[in-house]
């Protein structure tokens, strides 16, 4: 499929979209918190993937990781450009996770537990970093700076949270 993308075969992009657009749109929507903006970002992301696929190097990581980073960065850039304050993000987040999770639930019909149940299984510190990094579009250094946590601690907490998620999400 990566070959197809690099050969500029539209069918490959089509396949990619069908499999991964929802995962990326989920992250984007949570970061930008606006449906119209999120749709716009999702479009930009796929066009960027199409244009920059030659820059992807499979030896450095999975295609999904590469795409997700494009999506996350694009969403964060959009948020910055809109000068949305961090304060507002923090106020809205509890509401947003629950709300989006419900929407997600009905549309995706996931067989397992929902996002808020997943987050509920993490301890407070772990949940905090995951929410900031994945759902609110903070970078690790921003979390460190804004909440007075040493960057190293943010990184190890991220690590611990990811290990926890590995079990919860049954990744091998």
């Amino acid at each position: 499929m990566i070959k197809g993308l690099k050969a500029r075969n539209p069918a490959s992009l089509d396949y990619l979209y069908d499999h991964y657009s929802a995962a990326m749109y989920g992250i984007i929507t949570r970061v930008v918190k606006n449906k119209d903006v999120a749709e716009e970002v999702l479009q930009d992301v796929f066009l960027k993937i199409w244009d920059k696929i030659d820059a992807y190097d499979s030896s450095k990581g999975k295609l999904f990781t590469w795409m997700l980073n494009i999506a996350r960065n694009q969403a964060i850039d959009k948020t910055r450009s809109k000068e949305i304050s961090k304060g507002r993000k923090t106020d809205d987040i509890d509401n947003l996770v629950g709300k989006i999770d419900k929407a997600d639930y009905s549309e995706q019909n996931v067989e397992a537990i929902g996002l808020s149940e997943v987050l509920a299984k993490l301890n407070n510190d772990q949940r905090f970093v995951i929410e900031k990094l994945y759902l609110e579009g903070y970078t690790q250094s921003e979390v460190a700076e804004e909440f007075n946590i040493p960057l190293g601690t943010v990184k190890t907490r991220t690590r611990m949270a990811m290990i926890e998620l590995r079990t919860i999400l049954k990744v091998n």
Partner: peptide, 30 residues
């Protein structure tokens, strides 16, 4: 790989299906 798979699984867990119009808009530009 495990870290990436975990991230992917988490992203899938938090997936939201975009409206069909978005795909059409993207494909129009390809």
């Amino acid at each position: 790989s495990k870290v990436e798979e975990t991230l992917e699984a988490f992203a899938m867990k938090s997936a939201i299906k975009p409206r069909a119009e978005v795909k059409a808009a993207i494909m129009d530009k390809i």
